[in-house]
Amino acid sequence: MNPGYELPQNEAGYSFGFLDEYAKREVRRTVLKAICIPGYQTPYASREMPMGRGFGTGGLQVTLSLVGPGDTVKVIDQGADDSVNAVNLRKFIELTCPHVDTTEHTRDATLIQSRHRVPEMPLTEAQVLVLQVPYPDPLVVVEPSEARRKTMHGEGDYSRLLTKLYEDIVQFDEITISHRYPTRINGHYVIDPSPIPRYDVPQLHQNRALILLGAGREKKIYAVPPYSQADPLAFDDVPFRTEDFTDEYGRRRACARCGAIDSFLDELIDDDGARIWQCSDSDYCNERLAAAGKQEVARA
């Protein structure tokens, strides 16, 4: 071993965007192919990032390969900017990407990296949404071998997946998939849209923004291009349904904080043991409060 070797004294040696340029170039080539083959899980040699596999390393590699001076980045987890994991990723981007701004406002962002949510506010052509993906392949529930799954995807053969959905209906009278709802892109590939709730799936359809999905541990990148068909798998007589937020009287529940009745809600247990609902998208909630000129409803 080399006992005399001097270690670097600090972290300043890391390059812009952490990844070396060869790694970025590979991710960039992969992203372009992913756009050309909508919904296809394009393989790439995922690099190790300094946070755990499963913590958003796939999304982060995509974000770091895209980001440059002039970008404004927003990072959310469960819809919130100040969730621990979002804070951690945002701090990392700030550390490794000088001259890149970060924001908590959806409308100010050019790049949005998200885990488990699509922002409530409609995206624009000037934005790119990067979703973090733990399990990229919707066929894994019916076929464990990746080699066989690749053939099924290539042929657009989803009969076994549809059979699985049908069995659900027979057993439960309902499709039981709660999130990661299999969705067909541009009439061919069925994707796992990442663990977004069903509520967010319709947002993939004909979105104005490019949506990129990065699975770091499974080493795949796939895309839903702007203005593309995105159809959740369903049957004519059992349609796709989003989460139900109606109360026992049949009324749509409202956010306890901003009063929204058109957002995905987090269900919370109050200090008194009562259940309350609040917007999961914290920026959407804050914007609504600001627009109404209201202060946050203090419930201390």
Partner: peptide, 11 residues
């Protein structure tokens, strides 16, 4: 940074 710029135009 030039390549990052060009890539974004390509994207």
């Amino acid at each position: 940074l030039t390549q990052q710029f060009v890539f974004r135009r390509l994207l």
